[in-house]
């Protein structure tokens, strides 16, 4: 009886000799590396580091106090200025602009219509809350800040309605104003 399968008689096995496999692997590797070299590779880590630094400001205030918060905030501001001056892609620019809108509107370009709105509606309230943290006055100002940001975005009134940047800003100033 003829065997159903023999190692030496398999034509597929014959064609995939080790040298051929290695050469195919090397060819695809070279092609992939050249693609990376000639296209704009979006690293998710770069974007998430920006957002991580933004959300870690809450930790700064709870663990290191106001001085630590202001130091970390300044570092984040410099990072965002650098990105806005030479953004790598539109996605990165949008994220940096969103953080700048709620924390550093003064660094947004003048032609951005949102800049003036931010300078009027929440920048002064945030500055005042930072001057009198954990006080009754700060809590009153936080209530006004919340209303201004909600009315500015005016999404559906659900917890997930606000943009993630607006929601993070409110969490941050809630932490600064709460006793």
């Amino acid at each position: 009886m003829k065997p159903f399968f023999t190692f030496h008689s398999n034509p597929v096995r014959k064609s995939l000799s080790p040298w051929k496999t290695i050469s195919v692997f090397l060819t695809f590797s070279v092609l992939f590396l050249s693609y990376l070299a000639f296209t704009d590779f979006k690293s998710p880590f770069k974007d998430s580091s920006l957002e991580e630094n933004y959300s870690s400001l809450r930790q700064s205030i709870t663990q290191g106090g106001l001085a630590q918060f202001q130091k970390d905030k300044m570092q984040l501001k410099n990072q965002i200025i650098a990105i806005l001056n030479s953004p790598k892609n539109e996605d990165e620019e949008t994220k940096a602009s969103n953080i700048a809108l709620y924390l550093f509107p003064e660094i947004l370009p003048n032609e951005n219509f949102e800049k003036q709105a931010a300078l009027e509606l929440w920048a002064p309230l945030e500055a005042e809350i930072e001057q009198k943290p954990r006080s009754a006055k700060a809590r009153m100002l936080f209530e006004e800040l919340t209303s201004n940001i909600w009315n500015y975005e005016n999404p559906k009134i659900t917890n997930a309605g606000l943009s993630i940047y607006a929601a993070e800003t409110l969490k941050l100033y809630h932490a600064i104003s709460s006793p």
Partner: peptide
């Protein structure tokens, strides 16, 4: 439009359009 989806939507539409 701003009454429905906030002034932010309108300003972003102007920014994008411009």
């Amino acid at each position: 439009m701003a009454y429905n989806k906030g002034t932010r939507s309108v300003l972003n539409l102007w920014n994008t359009y411009q």
